[in-house]
Simulated assay, not measured.
Amino acid sequence: MDNLKGKAGELKEKASELAGKHSDQIEHAVDKAGGAIDKATKGKYTEKIEHGTIKAKGAVDDFAHKPKGTGAPGDPTGPAPDGGRGPNA
């Protein structure tokens, strides 16, 4: 069992490393998916989709152990204005 835990830790670290190396590609895919969803819903859920893409990018950064964004206006990696609690918090 300890050997299995060790392997799982190694795999997680390798996945984290790969996410860090390819974070730009992952973020591009998240943006593309968000755009496709927004188009399919005819803009009805634009704000929720944008919020979801920001959270997804933050999750990738967390997983890749990348530092958070500056939080400056227009910085998609910065903290959400609601502190990440979502609209129903």
Rank of each mutant, 00 (worst) to 15 (best):
G71W: 10
T70P: 00
K48E: 14
K55C: 03
G71D: 05
D24L: 08
D38Y: 07
I49E: 03
T70H: 05
P67M: 13
P81L: 05
I26K: 03
A72E: 11
G34I: 00
Q25T: 09
A40W: 10
K5D: 15
G35V: 03
V60F: 03
A8Q: 13
G43K: 07
A56P: 00
D61M: 06
H22P: 00
R85T: 12
A89N: 10
D24Y: 07
T41C: 07
G69F: 07
G84I: 00
H22I: 01
K39P: 02
G74D: 08
K55A: 15
K14N: 11
A72C: 06
L4Q: 11
L11M: 11
A89Y: 08
I26R: 01
E10N: 14
A33S: 13
H65M: 09
G34F: 01
Q25M: 08
K42H: 14
K55G: 09
K57R: 11
A72N: 13
D38V: 01
G86Q: 13
G83T: 11
T77D: 15
E13Y: 08
E13C: 02
G20E: 12
A89E: 11
A19T: 14
K21W: 04
G86I: 09
K21I: 07
K32W: 00
K5R: 15
K68T: 15
A29S: 06
G43D: 12
G34T: 02
R85P: 00
K7L: 13
D75S: 07
K44W: 03
G86H: 10
H65C: 10
G83D: 10
G20M: 05
D61C: 00
G86W: 13
G9Y: 07
N3L: 04
S23I: 06
N88P: 00
R85D: 07
Y45D: 03
T53V: 05
D61Q: 14
A33Y: 08
G83F: 05
D38K: 12
K32A: 10
D24V: 14
K42M: 13
K55E: 15
G20H: 06
A15H: 08
Y45I: 01
G43N: 09
N3Y: 04
K42G: 01
E47P: 01
A40D: 14
D75L: 01
D82P: 03
V30C: 06
V60D: 05
N3P: 00
A36W: 07
D62L: 04
F63D: 05
E10G: 12
Q25Y: 01
A8G: 03
K39T: 06
G86M: 08
K39Y: 04
G74V: 05
